[in-house]
């Protein structure tokens, strides 16, 4: 089991596409930090929770696109062609698929780690800021729901045709440019940029309203639901 995990991890993490994407993430994140975040978001400090949340919300569509892209790796034509061989091995196919999603999760985690690390380096270098523990909650609320959602959507749609995932990637791009109310938005840009202004006052304290909690919980539940629904379908289709 661990051998398969190691093998799949090596396949993904040392894949040239993965490395290219990591380089892209580094460049984009640094650009965002030194261009937007440095000015402080919605009149708050560049090292405020609001500014950090905005930064993550801006990166989130890119991370989501990359996650979907990893999903397409495992549903490519070649992968489908070797499905027959995998079914003939002693390890159950379901386990292999589960391992692959664990690998995707690790890949996503590493990229999210790079994003967070860059911001910590930036805040430390420019402002001498070190209290990074303040941001852990924000990392979870911004990135985890979209991670669950796109894992679910990816597994649901990837089983059918990869072209559908490309369509979803396009949708993610469009969503990234749309400005929706924070109660329904996917990535959180409106919340982190608009809510401090809505609260009013100078440098408002970080506060997450119920509407945003519900939003994050809903997307997480939908994502997890889709993931297990897709799993059930896959298991059934084997018989």
């Amino acid at each position: 089991m661990s051998e398969i995990l190691k093998y799949e991890l090596k396949r993904l993490l040392f894949h040239k596409v993965y490395l290219i994407l990591c380089a892209v993430i580094v460049c984009y994140s640094w650009g965002l930090l030194t261009r937007d975040v440095i000015l402080g978001i919605s009149n708050t400090a560049p090292f405020s929770e609001w500014s950090f949340g905005y930064y993550l919300a801006k990166i989130s569509p890119i991370l989501s696109i990359m996650l979907l892209f990893f999903v397409t790796f495992f549903y490519s034509k070649q992968e489908k062609e070797i499905k027959g061989i995998l079914l003939a091995t002693p390890t159950s196919y379901e386990k292999i698929v589960t391992i692959r999603y664990v690998v995707i999760a690790i890949g996503f985690l590493i990229q999210s780690g790079i994003v967070a690390l860059l911001s910590f380096i930036f805040l430390n270098r420019f402002f001498g800021y070190t209290r990074i523990a303040n941001f852990i909650g924000i990392i979870i609320t911004v990135l985890l729901p979209t991670f669950f959602l796109f894992m679910g959507i990816g597994r649901m749609m990837g089983g059918k045709k990869n072209i559908v995932i490309y369509g979803i990637i396009m949708m993610v791009l469009i969503l990234a440019f749309l400005s929706l109310p924070y109660q329904v938005e996917l990535f959180g840009e409106s919340f982190f940029k608009g809510y401090p202004l809505e609260i009013g006052g100078i440098e408002p304290e970080f506060y997450v309203p119920m509407g945003y909690w519900i939003n994050r919980i809903c997307y997480s539940v939908i994502g997890i639901g889709l993931f297990f629904l897709a799993r059930r379908k896959e298991v059934r289709s084997q018989f």
Partner: peptide, 22 residues
Amino acid sequence: DKLKNNFYHRYPEYLEKLPESY
């Protein structure tokens, strides 16, 4: 209001920490 609330307007000391171009 925008100016009054601006972070660097309130804390000009942080401007000194930034590179000149910023």
